[in-house]
Amino acid sequence: MVKVRIIPCLDVKDGRVVKGINFIDLIDAGDPVEQAKHYSENGADEICFLDISASIEQRDTMVNVVRKTANEVFIPLTVGGGISSVENIQSLLKAGADKVSINSAAINEPDIVKKSSEYFGNQCIVIAVDAKKINNDWYVFSHGGTKKTDLLALNWIEHVQKLGAGEILLTSMDKDGTKSGFDIELLKKVSEFLEIPLIASGGVGNLNHFYEGVAKGNANALLAASVFHFNEISIKEVKEYLLKKNIEIRI
C-alpha cells in the first residue's frame, strides 16, 4: 500500500530560509537548497517551500530557488505562497517544482483551480486551507491566516475537490504553533468525505502526534516545520516511531 508521507515545510523569504537551523552538514543554514538537500538525505518523502516574500519581484527569486533545488534534490517538491495566476504556476513547474500549493488565489478566484488542474493535471494542484473554529464551525481564513472569510472549511474543501484539486493541505490555525497535536476532529471530518489525499498541518509537538494524525485523523501525509527546523524531532525518529506502531512508511 501507499506509504504515509512526512513533509518538512520551509519558510522562504526573499530566497532565504527563515528559522532554518544549522544542521552540522550545512555550510549555509539560510540556503533553501542546502536545507532541502539535508531533509531529502535524512528521509523526507517530499519537500514543501512556502514563499513568504512580500513583493511580486521577489517571487522571481523563488523560481531561481526552485531551479537550483531541482538540480540537487530528487524527491517531490511543492511550492506555495503568493501564487496568483496560471503563469505563476507554469513558471514554477517549468523550473522543476512538481506541485504548487494555492491558497488565497483560489478563494478570490475559484476558477484558477479548475483552469490550472485542467491545464497541468490535478496531480500538481494542491489547495492549502487555513481553518479556524468559531463557535461550532470551521471557517476558512485567507492571506496567511489574517483575513476571515465567510466560507465554511468543510464546504470549501468539498468544492475545490470538485473543481479539480489534487490534494488538500489542511492547516488548523487553532493548533498551529501550540505543539499540542493536530486538530484530529477537523481531520476526521474532512477525511470522511475527501476522495483526494489529505496533508495534515499545524500543531505537531511530539512523536505520538504524528501517529495520531494518521491513526485517528486519517491523514495521508504529515507536514511539520518547527519541530524539524529546531531539531527537536528528526524525520528518522518519526519514521521509526510510526513503523513500530505498524504504520506503513518509507525507510
Partner: peptide, 13 residues
C-alpha cells in the same frame, strides 16, 4: 478501481 482509496494514487509505494 476506487475501492474507497484516495485518487490519484500519490506517494511512495
Amino acid at each position: 478501481p476506487k475501492k474507497n482509496l484516495k485518487m490519484p494514487h500519490m506517494g511512495w509505494n
